[in-house]
Design a protein around this nucleic acid. Structure first.
Lengths: 107, 107
DNA sequence: GGTCTATTTCAAGGATCATCGAAATAGCAA
DNA sequence: TTGCTATTTCGATGATCCTTGAAATAGACC
């Protein structure tokens, strides 16, 4: 994971619509979600969703698998794990396990 | 932490220059770094750095403290911790503690 | 082949961003 | 006051992004 790749992934997640797409997929779990279902849930134009999905896929944060007539989208957990690893690299690795507000551990 | 705030912070980190600024501050640790030193290390125009610094500060990822003649910048570890918490929320919380590939038991 | 559904690509608009040099500000020193 | 250092604000330019509807593609079914 280099800085360019990390920035690309962070930028991909830095758009509210894409972040919502990504979180929806995260919530969907291993089963994933078809593109059409995502569109219903989020309520944006299909072309807009396709565009954002493309960016998420390019950065490796989301994967797609073709089923009979639909494309199933899934969050790529290892990729995000790697990104989080890069973020906490060399600073507050131990604090990374405390997702609560106890901001004392790292400082 | 709502989705809008998280997206703002992710977008802030999603620019290679800003990510480099942020990581440099992370590496600097508690002592922080003056703006001028940051500029030397990164090699961009002072106005550009100021602009990026402003965005990082607005999102809460970086703090500034005035010393005699210089401004000391510091990475805000709790803020990033909170962002990471949001990212791993409801999906792979245990995996968040294993930034390596080995499936260590999540404490 | 023809049709239907699901999804992507195309083209375009308006908005935002990244970067820079020049000028302005703030604080200290002489 | 004048000068010096450190940093920010201003103004501008070129690039990129977000969003959409319309058109095109891919696959399944009759």
């Amino acid at each position: 994971m280099n800085i360019e790749e990390a920035a690309k992934q962070l930028e991909a997640l830095g758009n509210p619509t894409r972040l919502q797409v990504y979180r929806t997929l995260v919530r969907a779990g291993d089963g994933g979600l078809p593109v059409g279902r995502l569109q219903e849930k989020i309520g944006i134009a299909a072309s807009t969703l396709s565009h954002h999905l493309h960016r998420l896929i390019l950065t490796g944060l989301v994967t797609q698998e073709r089923q009979v007539t639909t494309l199933i989208c899934r969050a790529n957990y290892p990729a995000m794990n790697s990104l989080v690893g890069f973020l906490v690299d060399e600073c507050c690795v131990d604090a990374a396990c405390t997702t609560e507000q106890d901001g004392e551990a790292a400082a």
